[in-house]
């Protein structure tokens, strides 16, 4: 087995008295994608900044592309691309100028910098907007430009800090496709995200981080299994119809559907995908039941946190008692 492209051991960081990161271990095999999943303030950016040599940890060590982050930061910088949480583009330069500047700063030479810029703009579908000022770019275009700028030197390791936060679905999917292209060409990616779906789309493995600690690690499937995955949720107007719905849903799984009498809603873990949805829909139609609402509810970050820690990510902002709670759950999570 070759050594991992990114590995970190015991990373800790305090800001003043505030422990932002505690004893974080990570390992990303070369050519794979690790998703670092966590809510606001979990320590995702702190982790990325340490690995990208922008921040010195209080304790721990890390290597990136075979180079020690603390002892050889300059060597690390030659081998990484970083796309920060907020697109780092110069709004008063055109897209082309942004990328050419990076090329020149990387000493490609003016000519080669121009060629490389044209290549990247093409690859990231920015050729038409290449000579417009970046301040007129949409959020999605900025992100793409930012990603392109981080790839000028063809780095083998790429850090993406919340690459699609704030983007609409179309832009998000475009960006996902572009990240996948990089992965296909052999780039190792560590990406942070607040969306389970994003980790699911892009990552081979997911590490869940909360309050500066890793609380779980596994493939997206393992994680979703633990969370319960997507659920099919059906609401009806009449209480009498609810029984029909419940019976129909029960046929999907060994598990009993969850029923809420007040909202007249029944739901069940969805395993059979679109076929299951179609069969339930047909069954209800045959029985003459007109659902008020018929929806697939995707597992959210909150579901992950609820399942892993027993509290939702929003509630994790509270004080100490929950910190202990979290520690207890952490052991549980790791023993799974």
């Amino acid at each position: 087995m070759t050594e991992p492209a990114v590995s970190a051991e015991g990373l800790s960081k305090k800001y003043g008295d505030f422990q932002a990161l505690q004893d974080v271990n990570l390992s990303v095999p070369a050519g794979t994608v690790l998703g670092l999943l966590g809510p606001n303030g979990a320590g995702k950016t702190t982790t990325v900044r340490i690995l990208a040599t922008l921040l010195t940890p209080d304790a721990g060590q890390a290597t990136v592309a075979g180079q020690d982050v603390l002892r050889k930061p300059a060597e690390v910088r030659k081998r990484i691309g970083l796309t920060g949480q907020y697109a780092a583009v110069d709004a008063r330069l055109t897209g082309r100028e942004n990328i050419e500047l990076i090329g020149v700063l990387l000493h490609l030479g003016r000519k080669a910098a121009k060629v490389r810029a044209a290549e990247l703009l093409e690859q990231f579908e920015l050729t038409d907007a290449a000579d417009k000022l970046a301040k007129n770019y949409s959020g999605g275009m900025r992100r793409r430009l930012d990603l392109a700028a981080s790839l000028v030197s063809r780095p083998p390791v790429l850090f993406l800090d919340e690459p699609t936060t704030g983007l609409d679905l179309t832009s998000r999917m475009t960006l996902w496709r572009m990240v996948k292209e990089q992965v296909d060409s052999g780039v190792t990616v560590l990406l942070t995200t607040q969306y389970l779906e994003e980790a699911d789309q892009l990552a081979n493995r997911v590490a869940v981080i909360d309050k500066g600690r890793l609380i779980a690690e596994g493939t997206p499937d393992e994680l979703k299994r633990r969370v319960g995955g997507d659920r099919l949720e059906v609401s009806v107007t009449d209480t009498s119809d609810l029984a029909v719905v419940t019976t129909a849903l029960a046929s999907l799984s060994a598990e009993q559907p969850t029923v809420d009498q007040d909202s007249r809603t029944a739901s069940i873990a969805l395993s059979g995908g679109i076929k299951a949805i179609a069969s339930i829909s047909a069954e209800l139609e045959a029985a003459g039941v007109e659902p008020l609402d018929f929806a697939v509810r995707r597992s959210s970050m909150d579901d992950v946190f609820l399942a892993l820690t027993g509290h939702s990510s929003a509630a994790s902002d509270d004080g100490d008692p929950q910190q202990q709670d979290l520690n207890a759950n952490e052991k549980e999570a790791q023993s799974v």
């Binding site: 900044r49 990208a52 040599t53 922008l54 300059a74 910088r77 030659k78 990484i80 691309g81 970083l82 920060g84 949480q85 907020y86 697109a87 780092a88 583009v89 110069d90 709004a91 990076i102 700063l105 990387l106 700028a149 981080s150 030197s153």
Partner: peptide, 13 residues
């Protein structure tokens, strides 16, 4: 504040 310093600092310049 707009991240350009981070970008420059992550480059080998």
């Amino acid at each position: 504040s707009n991240g350009i310093v981070d970008r420059f600092r992550s480059l080998p310049i």
